[in-house]
């Protein structure tokens, strides 16, 4: 019984980690209509930046609020320098997708050339709590709390603020939004800044939790993508919920199956959803982007 509960908790932690990636991933997809795989590399880059800054001083936590801002500007920079010029050339979402994969590989290579391939560890005190023989660390609690608050913050942003309404307008129909005076390029800038800031903060937490390696972003963006597809690529709340479902199914699944099948479980779920319900559990019916 306690094993089952521990696995459920592990699934919850894994789901929170995936949702930190999938929330931004799906928001970019929703408004910009392309899958930005470079999202995972922004995560890795942020984690490495935090590593470098925190190893310079004693006050590592001082940098915690600064990293998301830097990550936001990295995302903004990628949008302005690469994606904008591609959009100007009337590139299709397929071209943007390929460009984002190329960017992902480029950024990973950049990380490896700057920080090297060896394992990097962010040293922080990470006490372990044991409740009813269930074990969880402080960082894991932070990850869960942060991902749940992102869920509500994004909900509030999209439904209640003027910016959110403008984002939804651009997402629904870019041309009409422009005719009523919404500058879509500006909206794209906001989206990239917000999503990259979220994934940057997530990167720091994940970096502390899982140690740093140059490839960390790739595996995470694939899981985040899978979570987003399950919940519905066109809905942020769906993407976050989908990530939790993925994390829990994956971890419970290997209670009965050999553990080598963990990745197989998530990809089987991915295929099932792509075949049977491509709009996901909570998504609207997708339009051709």
């Amino acid at each position: 019984m306690s094993l089952l509960l521990q696995l459920l908790l592990n699934g919850l932690i894994a789901g929170s980690i995936y949702s930190l990636v999938s929330s931004g991933f799906s928001l970019i997809y929703q408004v910009n209509k392309f899958m930005n795989f470079a999202h995972g590399s922004v995560l890795a880059l942020s984690a490495y930046l935090f590593y470098s800054l925190s190893s310079m001083t004693e006050f590592a936590l001082f940098f915690l609020p600064i990293i998301p801002i830097i990550s936001g500007f990295i995302g903004l920079g990628l949008n302005r320098s690469i994606y904008r010029s591609l959009r100007k050339g009337k590139s299709t979402s397929g071209v943007l997708l390929i460009a984002s994969i190329a960017l992902m590989i480029l950024l990973n290579a950049l990380i490896q050339s700057i920080w090297g391939a060896a394992v990097r560890i962010i040293q922080v005190k990470n006490p372990i709590f044991e409740i009813l023989s269930l074990r969880i660390t402080l960082v894991q609690i932070c990850i869960i709390v942060f991902s749940i608050s992102i869920f509500f913050i994004l909900y509030f942003l999209m439904k209640k603020t003027k910016l959110g309404k403008a984002m939804r307008a651009v997402s629904d129909n870019k041309e009409v939004a422009q005719t009523i005076g919404i500058n879509s390029e500006k909206i794209y800038d906001y989206i990239f800044f917000i999503c990259s800031a979220i994934v940057g903060a997530g990167g720091v937490l994940i970096g502390i939790e899982q140690n740093l390696s140059p490839q960390m972003g790739i595996a995470l963006v694939i899981k985040g993508f899978t979570g987003a597809v399950i919940g519905g690529l066109s809905s942020i709340q769906g993407a976050i919920a989908g990530s939790f479902i993925l994390g829990i199914l994956e971890n419970l699944g290997i209670l009965w199956l050999p553990s080598g099948y963990k990745d197989a479980i998530s990809f089987i779920i991915l295929f099932l959803f792509l075949l049977i319900k491509p709009s996901g559990l909570f998504g609207k019916k997708m339009r051709e982007a």
Partner: peptide, 20 residues
């Protein structure tokens, strides 16, 4: 006997099974 693929970095469930 537990295993994981090279892309994984979260072994908690495998390790929970080992603990059990």
């Amino acid at each position: 006997v537990e295993s994981y693929s090279s892309e994984e970095s979260d072994f908690r469930t495998q390790l929970a099974k080992i603990k059990a």
